[in-house]
Amino acid sequence: MTPAERPLSPFQLGTIYKLQLTSMLSLNHRATGIFLSVGSPFLVWWLVAAATGDHAFAAARWFFGSWLGLLMLLGWTFSFFYHLCNGIRHLVWDAGYGFELRTAYASGWTVVAASGALTVIAYAAGLLVRG
């Protein structure tokens, strides 16, 4: 049996469903989750390098200090705070609160503002510590 060619969920956005804050935040929750998963091997690399020796750690340190490493750290910082803030929003929903449209939009914008602010604070603090 050949399945019917129906449009599948993510590809209906923009063509069938109008783009809106709530759906964009939902999409971004998944995207940041995937990006954080991509980052997790790098975290293990850093830990294993520290346990292995000076030479191994120097390589990891060089990478995280390179422009690519710093860019990825910025992406992971934002992804972490976004996924954290929006994750808390999801937990509140799981508890049965915040489903009113106005509340859902208010909490959505709060997530955007909070994750943006926390990213700037944490990344700037990191750069300051690094010297």
């Binding site: 520290a50 000076d54 750690f57 120097a58 340190r61 200090g65 910082t77 972490f80 944490a122 603090a125 990191g126 750069l127 510590v129 690094r130 010297g131």
Partner: peptide, 13 residues
Amino acid sequence: FAASLVALAGADR
């Protein structure tokens, strides 16, 4: 952990 990593930014081994 995030706070710890910020405090360790650029740390040597």
